[in-house]
C-alpha cells in the first residue's frame, strides 16, 4: 500500500515539476506547483508528519499559491518570451546542476544505515504517544522562544509587503474611479 501511494504521488510530484518547467504561461506553472505541493503533503503523511502535511496544504497550497496566482492575475502576466538565456547559465549553470544531482544521487544511494518506511510507524519510541504530541511538546516547551520570534518575522514581512506594494500619493484609486465612469 505504501509502495503504491509512494509511486503514485512521487509520480504526481515529478510530473508537476516537469510541467512547471515546460509551461510557458505563468498561471499553468502555478497550478502545476500546487499539484507538486499537495503531493508532497501526502508524502509527508506517509513519513509520519501529519502536522506538516496539514501545514503544507494550508500554508503552501493555500496561502502561498493563492498569493502567486493573485499576483499572476493582478499583473496580467502573459506568455513568457523564449530567449536564449544567459551564457553564464548555459556554461556554468547546467553543468553545475548535473554535478549537484550526481553528487546527491551518489551520496543517497551509497548511504549506509538508512532504513525503510513502514506505514503508520511513529517517531516516538514510547508506546501510545502520537507524533503530534511529541512535536507539540518540543515546539511549545523547548523551542517556544523561536516560535514566538517567528510571529515577529511574519509581522515584519506583512509590513514590508505593504510598504513595498503601496503606491505613494494614492493616485491609483482616483484614476481608477474616473476610468470606471
Amino acid at each position: 500500500m505504501h509502495l503504491i501511494l509512494f509511486f503514485l504521488f512521487a509520480g504526481f510530484c515529478l510530473a508537476g515539476a516537469i510541467n512547471l518547467l515546460l509551461q510557458t504561461h505563468p498561471i499553468n506553472s502555478a497550478l502545476s506547483l500546487i499539484v507538486v505541493m499537495t503531493s508532497l503533503a501526502v508524502l509527508y503523511l506517509l513519513l509520519g508528519a501529519e502536522f506538516l502535511a496539514i501545514a503544507q496544504i494550508i500554508v503552501y497550497s493555500g496561502a502561498v499559491m493563492v498569493l502567486f496566482t493573485f499576483v499572476v492575475m493582478l499583473l496580467n502576466a502573459g506568455r513568457e518570451e523564449r530567449t536564449l538565456g544567459s551564457r553564464a547559465a548555459a556554461r556554468v549553470g547546467f553543468p553545475a546542476v548535473v554535478v549537484i544531482f550526481a553528487v546527491l544521487a551518489t551520496i543517497v544511494l551509497h548511504m549506509q544505515g538508512i532504513g525503510s518506511a513502514h506505514f503508520g510507524q511513529g517517531l516516538s519510541n514510547a508506546p501510545g504517544q502520537s507524533n503530534l504530541e511529541l512535536l507539540s511538546q518540543v515546539l511549545f516547551h523547548e523551542l517556544l522562544l523561536p516560535f514566538e520570534v517567528t510571529s515577529v518575522l511574519i509581522l515584519i514581512a506583512i509590513l514590508g509587503a505593504v510598504a513595498l506594494a503601496h503606491v505613494e500619493g494614492s493616485k491609483i484609486p482616483e484614476s481608477g474611479r474616473t476610468a470606471e465612469k
Binding site: 509512494f6 510530484c13 512547471l20 508524502l43 549537484i100 544531482f101 546527491l104 543517497v108 548511504m111 525503510s116
Partner: peptide, 20 residues
C-alpha cells in the same frame, strides 16, 4: 516497505528541477 533513499532521491530530483 519503501526505502527511505527513494524519498531522498525524489528530493534530489525535485531540487535539480528547481535549479533548472
Amino acid at each position: 516497505d519503501v526505502p527511505l533513499s527513494w524519498y531522498l532521491l525524489l528530493s534530489a530530483v525535485l531540487f535539480s528541477l528547481g535549479v533548472v
